[in-house]
């Protein structure tokens, strides 16, 4: 046996093994989104489920992201065939109601589903406090780089994607993100020059 050569050969295996060990810390199924930090893709979508007052919007009303500039937008993609969407439904619906009157808009987007199935799902879940829109051809979903539902995008007052949540949102996480985004909104013209951060 030539032990010196053996040792050199053994050392060459180390990087490979380290690579695999490191691989365990990664989730190969996750696709990192390039959107956070960049301008949120514009959309203009028609409401198909009105939501409940006071957050409701009439069916057929067109929602444009551009019109919501200066306010926080929580954009949730969902579908009736999606199991995890059931988990987060109550959290989203309740949180949206709690934030009534604050500068934040909760919006749902139905992803690759029939409107009838979407409406039936909302009824089955006991209603949705905020409106949901239809997305024909999944154009907006593709614009947002969607690859599974639920996915939730948090858009700040400057119209940038601040954060993307893959999978169901949790109550604490949702409130925390929305609070910090509201706090970062530029102050109203009435009270200039004070930047408040909670």
């Amino acid at each position: 046996m030539n032990w010196k050569r053996s040792l050199i050969a053994a050392v060459t295996a180390v990087p490979v093994i380290l690579l695999f060990a490191w691989g365990f810390t990664r989730d190969p199924g996750e696709i990192p989104s390039p959107l956070p930090g960049h301008a949120a893709p514009q959309f203009s979508l028609d409401v198909f489920a009105p939501g409940q007052p006071p957050l409701s919007r009439p069916v057929g009303d067109t929602v444009r992201l551009a019109d919501l500039r200066g306010q926080v937008v929580v954009l949730n993609f969902w579908a009736s065939w999606c199991g995890a969407c059931r988990e987060e439904h109550a959290v989203l619906s309740t949180t949206a109601r709690l934030y009534t009157g604050r500068p934040v808009h909760f919006l749902g987007v139905l992803y690759n589903d029939s409107l009838a199935a979407g409406e039936a799902w909302i009824a089955e879940m006991g209603g949705q406090s905020y409106p949901s829109m239809q997305d024909p051809g999944a154009r907006t979903a593709i614009d947002y780089g969607l690859y599974g539902v639920p996915e939730t995008f948090f858009i700040d007052g400057d119209g940038r994607v601040a954060y993307k949540q893959l999978g169901p949102v949790t109550g604490v996480g949702l409130a925390h993100i929305v609070d910090s985004l509201i706090a970062a909104l530029p102050p109203k013209p009435a009270a200039p020059a004070t930047k408040s951060r909670s």
């Binding site: 390039p34 959107l35 893709p41 780089g145």
Partner: peptide, 8 residues
């Protein structure tokens, strides 16, 4: 598509 989904 890269701008939406990354190089992935």
């Amino acid at each position: 598509f890269v701008s939406k989904y990354g190089e992935w």
